[in-house]
Design a protein around this nucleic acid. Structure first.
Length: 270
DNA sequence: CCATATGTTACTCG
DNA sequence: ACGAGTAACATATG
């Protein structure tokens, strides 16, 4: 579900909700298969630990604990909800972190693709490409990396080890803004077009964050914030899930690239 | 019943 | 080594 804009929204809301520096006084694990350690080891390490920092790298949400890193990936349908301690657990709520201020974070994930990794360091994220919100996401290295590959651009942009943060929705949107075909071979992209693409990515993501992310559909599986409210960027999408090009009004084409449905305008993107 | 879904990885084949 | 393609994970929705 969540791409970088959604995870960033969650992170920002967690700071605003003053989760930082809270002590985790209890841990509930209803689905041990969602953690990378034994239940016992997880509880032992996490319980009575304080949240020192909250970070995001690519689509990973990271709680920096006193002695450990709790790295969370939400995959397709993972959600983090902020609840009161008297909350009654519902279907698909698999893990809960309970704080000293009587609030708790509940992990909700119908498809259970998401995962909690308890690690000693962040080295498991070393392979990730440059986070597209970080200061080191700069045009020159982006262009150089594009030129070093011979793949279609959509596959590359979705590859978290190439650059980290984009998913299917925002790749479609960025390619539309840059007027680039999803199957354009990276090696053949001119410097000018690469620049368009680079700034399109930045523009889309910052707009999406301002709109608190994208929530397609209305079911509980779709993205919502820690307060269970929807984002707003679905109202600003230009091609993803659309039928008509907002630019030339021709029909939006749908093809599979990298196993994912790609929406694009044949006329505007080539 | 069928297709599809905001993600990633392991595996195969060429 | 590289790139492309597929299955797999598990569930809900239209």
């Amino acid at each position: 579900m969540p791409e970088i804009a959604e995870v960033e929204t969650i992170k920002n809301d967690l700071f605003a909700a003053k989760i930082l520096s809270q002590k985790i006084v209890d841990v509930k694990i209803f689905k041990p298969s969602l953690i990378n350690t034994s239940k016992k080891a997880f509880v032992h390490k996490v319980k009575n630990s304080r949240i020192i920092n909250i970070k995001r790298i690519g689509k990973y949400l990271i709680f920096v604990l006193e002695d450990k890193f709790l790295i969370i990936h939400l995959r397709m349908t993972g959600h983090i909800f902020l609840k009161d301690q008297n909350h009654i657990f519902q279907k698909h709520e698999h893990i809960a972190l309970i704080f000293e201020n009587k609030k708790m974070l509940v992990y909700f994930d119908p498809r259970r693709f998401g995962k909690f990794y308890l690690r000693d360091d962040l080295s498991s994220l070393d392979k990730l490409g440059c986070d597209i919100l970080s200061k080191s996401f700069i045009f020159d290295s982006f262009y150089e990396k594009l030129k070093s590959k011979k793949k279609n651009i959509k596959t590359l942009l979705l590859d978290q080890n190439f650059i980290a943060g984009l998913g299917n929705i925002y790749v479609d949107e960025a390619l539309f803004l840059a007027k680039m075909h999803p199957e354009k071979i990276s090696l053949n992209i001119t410097k000018e077009k690469a620049k368009d693409l680079f700034f399109s990515i930045k523009k889309i993501i910052s707009k999406a964050i301002k709109n608190r992310g994208t929530s397609l559909g209305k079911s509980r599986s779709n993205f919502s914030s820690i307060y269970e409210d929807f984002g707003n960027f679905q109202n600003h999408l230009l091609v993803h899930t659309k039928k008509t090009c907002p630019n030339c009004f021709s029909e939006i084409k749908k093809i599979k690239v990298s196993q994912r449905t790609s929406h694009f305008c044949e006329k505007c993107q080539n």
